[in-house]
C-alpha cells in the first residue's frame, strides 16, 4: 500500500492505454515510455498491462503504509529511501512499513530522461475506464477521477504482493533502455507532403531541435530552425508520433494524450519502436531526427519486442530460481 506524500510536477496511473477508441475522440494514453512500463511490470511480476505509477521529473514522494515491494523502470530519477539508501532503476526494492521513497529528479538535458515507473508487486488496484486505468488528464479519464494523483491519495495492491522479489534486477546489459541508444529519433515521412514544401522531411532531419518547455503528454514542442509554415488543411485523424507543422513552423510531435484529429500537415510519424525515446524527452533536451523507411521501422519494432521478450524470460527464470532457493515453491 502506497500513499502519495508529494506528487511532484505530475504523477499519474498508467498502463498500456486504451487504443482503438480514436473514432470517439479518445486518445490512447498509456505509459509515455512503454519500455519503462514493461520493465517495471516484468520485474514486479505484474501482468504486462498492469497499472503503474508514472513519475515525472523530480519531487515525488511516496510512503509505504505497509511493507511492500516496488519495481522501478524508465528513467533513473535519483530515487532514494528516506534513510538515504539509493534505489537504482531497473531493480526491485523492499520498502519497509513507514519508509518513504523520494525522487530527486534529473536536470534538463539529462541523458536518462524524465519519467520513471513504479510498479507495486501484486499490482495497483485501479478501476479501468473504457478498458484502461490510464489517466488521460485532458479527457478526464482513468486513474482517480481522471485527474493527476495528489498528496493523500492511497494506492492499494490489487492482490497480496510477493515480497521475495526484492533485489531482482533487469538485465540492462542485454536489454538496455532504447533511450540510452545514441543517434537521431527516426520518423517515417508523410502523409501530408503535398501540403508542405517538398523538402520538409529533410528540413526536419537537418536541424538540431530543443524540446520546448510547454511539452507534455499531449505533444512535444520543438524549438529550433523553424520549418516553412504549415497552412491549415482539412482536419484528418492523427496518431501519437505524428510530427505536425503548425502555422508558426515550430513542429509538434503529437503524443499519447494528444488530439485524435488535427488540422495541420503532418511531415512524418515517429514509429512505435521510438516511443520509449519520445517518452523520455524533457524540456531543454536537444534532439535530432532522421528519416526511416516504413519496412525498417517495422523490423526495428519486431527486434525491440524480441529483446524485451528475451529479457522477460531471463527475469522470470531468476524469479523461479529465487522461489526454489527459498523453498516457497516453484
Amino acid at each position: 500500500m502506497l500513499e502519495v506524500v508529494d506528487p511532484g510536477p505530475l504523477l499519474t496511473l498508467q498502463d498500456r492505454g486504451r487504443p482503438g477508441l480514436a473514432h470517439l475522440g479518445v486518445p490512447p494514453s498509456g505509459a509515455a515510455d512503454p519500455w519503462g512500463h514493461a520493465v517495471a511490470c516484468l520485474l514486479a511480476e505484474s501482468p504486462a498491462g498492469a497499472a503503474v505509477l508514472e513519475v515525472t521529473l523530480g519531487g515525488a514522494r511516496l510512503r509505504a503504509v505497509e511493507t511492500c515491494t516496488v519495481a522501478l523502470g524508465g528513467a533513473d530519477l535519483g530515487a532514494e529511501l528516506d534513510d538515504g539508501r539509493r534505489l537504482p532503476c531497473g531493480a526491485v526494492h523492499l520498502l519497509p512499513a513507514g519508509s518513504e521513497i523520494r525522487f530527486a529528479g534529473s536536470g534538463p538535458g539529462s541523458a536518462s530522461g524524465i519519467r520513471a515507473y513504479v510498479a507495486l508487486a501484486g499490482g495497483i488496484d485501479a478501476r479501468p475506464v473504457l478498458g484502461s486505468a490510464s489517466t488521460c488528464v485532458p479527457a478526464r479519464l482513468g486513474g482517480i477521477d481522471g485527474r493527476p494523483l495528489r498528496a493523500g491519495d492511497v494506492l492499494l495492491p490489487a492482490r497480496r504482493g510477493d515480497l521475495g522479489a526484492a533485489g531482482r534486477v533487469w538485465p540492462s546489459g542485454t536489454a538496455p533502455h532504447p533511450a540510452t541508444r545514441p543517434g537521431p529519433i527516426r520518423f517515417v515521412a508523410g502523409p501530408d507532403l503535398r501540403h508542405l514544401p517538398p523538402d520538409a522531411p529533410e528540413a526536419l532531419a537537418a536541424s538540431t531541435w530543443v524540446v520546448g518547455p510547454a511539452s507534455d503528454r499531449m505533444g512535444i514542442r520543438l524549438d529550433g530552425a523553424n520549418l516553412p509554415a504549415g497552412r491549415e488543411i482539412l482536419s484528418h485523424p492523427v496518431i501519437p508520433g505524428a510530427v505536425q507543422v503548425p502555422a508558426d513552423g515550430r513542429p509538434v510531435v503529437l503524443f499519447v494524450d494528444g488530439p485524435t484529429i488535427g488540422g495541420y500537415p503532418v511531415a512524418g510519424v515517429v514509429p512505435r519502436w521510438q516511443w520509449p525515446r519520445l517518452g523520455q524527452l524533457g524540456p531543454g533536451d536537444r534532439v535530432r531526427f532522421a528519416v526511416q523507411a516504413a519496412a525498417a521501422a517495422r523490423a526495428a519494432w519486431s527486434a525491440q519486442q524480441r529483446v524485451l521478450a528475451a529479457a522477460a524470460r531471463s527475469v522470470r527464470a531468476d524469479a523461479l530460481w529465487d522461489r526454489l532457493a527459498d523453498g516457497s515453491g516453484g
Binding site: 502523409p191 482539412l234 505524428a242 510519424v269 521501422a297 519494432w301
Partner: peptide, 29 residues
C-alpha cells in the same frame, strides 16, 4: 480544430498514404 470553409469539390478518387509504419490514411477530399 479545423474551421475549414466548405468547397464544392466532389470526391473523384482517393489518395492512400502512410501514416507511420502501422497505419494508412485515405484522403477523399
Amino acid at each position: 480544430m479545423t474551421a475549414h470553409t466548405a468547397g464544392s469539390v466532389v470526391p473523384r478518387r482517393a489518395v492512400i498514404e502512410r501514416m507511420g509504419d502501422a497505419a494508412l490514411i485515405a484522403t477523399l477530399a
